[in-house]
Design a protein around this nucleic acid. Structure first.
Lengths: 227, 227
DNA sequence: TGACTGAATTATGAATTCATAATTACACCC
DNA sequence: GGGTGTAATTATGAATTCATAATTCAGTCA
């Protein structure tokens, strides 16, 4: 084992990949829009080379699509894509649940318990913002506890694809209560270190979330597009 | 639906990503080696810009690692990484098996049956080359039949990480026979369109393959490194 | 008036150039 | 002779430049 950690200096393009991905995930760059190369260069204060390198990476991650000689556009997440993505995420979460039970340590357990409490409080207060944060923390902590970097990396990419800011709004009270209940079952299984159960619940939890998203999208479509 | 397909002209860097990834997967560029930027530029007849763009993409895919101001090195696949990767692949294959049973069509079924026969013949003749080709065709066909592009893309990346040419040699007769037997069970399940079973078998098949790889690596290590 | 043609403008992909960090080579000191 | 410090060389990251493809817009003709 090495005596010293190798120093990490985030290179320019790496930083840009993260920043740009955030712009997409946070919905600052809307799906279908063309990525304004020039404007972003100025706004970030870099030249086109590193920015374009970053775009190539984002394209391979699926956040933008490159059109030959016509630049990059923010990828649109189609219904088909959602339907393809969720089952994959669900399986990864299932695996994460199983592994987490094998590998989680006391500190990780304490953190999850704390965030679980915070989530419950946020639910009681109907505080969506806090709820989503705590919820995300828990899922991330479980993924982290699985102690599998490959799993983590792929999960992160897929989760980012699906997590668009606007989904935050689409949470019915029914689904919210159901989600809380599922999280309760997750905690039970985790406390028992019952990986099999935790995996099952997490998988199902994700698929239910999926169904809720689809329903929200369809309701929205029924109301008619607003512009 | 569009009358004409959009013309696909693989942009320079896209082509390079594929070519370079192949060099890594085919073991032409050995793990740990630094990627010779200049030499590759000359060999491909391109300038550094597109090549470096390609390296950034390969880095995000995990095939090379970038070191700030010290260029790129071919990623070494550590034992830890193998141990992390296989369970993830196994889950993806499990999902693929389930979905394939739902979605496979007659043509896909026929192709797999044909390749399965070819694989059996290759086994009888102890023709490793043909066996591996048929085996890979079957797995790819099942992934394809699952009809899920997200699943397919992530599986492709992970499979490439693990598939290093030299693994071809490390197939004991015992494991080979076991693999054939597992493939037989896969075909049975597929013919019955029993997704649950096919998924289970495929998952187990992958984990057994994993165990065989690990064993081969350990045997190799016991014999001592040869240089 | 509307559609088509073609020149002008713009944006993109790739090559080249430039500044700087890292590596190597070498002299000097202990 | 081994080790340290410094200069020369090399390689890398990023900016700039250049050629070309795409788009826009004006002018022409039906």
């Amino acid at each position: 084992m090495p005596l010293t950690e190798t120093i990490k200096r985030p290179s320019l393009h790496e930083e840009l990949v993260d920043r740009l991905r955030n712009l997409v995930v946070e919905d600052a760059l809307k799906p279908g829009e063309k990525v304004p190369e020039k404007a972003l260069c100025e706004s970030f204060g870099v030249s086109r080379t590193p920015l374009r390198e970053a775009l190539k990476v984002l394209a391979s991650e699926g956040f933008v699509v490159l059109q030959a000689n016509r630049g990059a556009r923010v990828a649109t997440v189609t219904r088909q894509e959602l339907e393809n993505t969720f089952p994959v995420i669900a399986r990864l979460e299932q695996l994460a649940g199983e592994l987490a039970c094998d590998h989680i340590d006391a500190a990780g357990m304490a953190w999850i318990e704390a965030r679980h409490d915070a989530m419950a409080k946020a639910f009681d207060a109907r505080d969506r913002q806090s709820y989503f944060q705590a919820n995300q923390d828990i899922h991330q902590a479980l993924i982290h506890a699985a102690n599998n970097d490959i799993l983590k990396a792929h999960h992160k990419l897929l989760a980012a694809r699906v997590r668009r800011a606007r989904f935050m709004a689409n949470l019915s009270d029914d689904r919210w209560a159901q989600a809380i209940e599922e999280h309760g079952r997750m905690m039970e299984a985790l406390r028992r270190r019952d990986g099999e159960s935790l995996g099952q619940v997490m998988k199902q939890h994700m698929m239910n979330k999926f169904a809720a998203h689809i329903k929200a999208i369809e309701d929205e479509a029924d109301e008619g597009p607003d512009k």
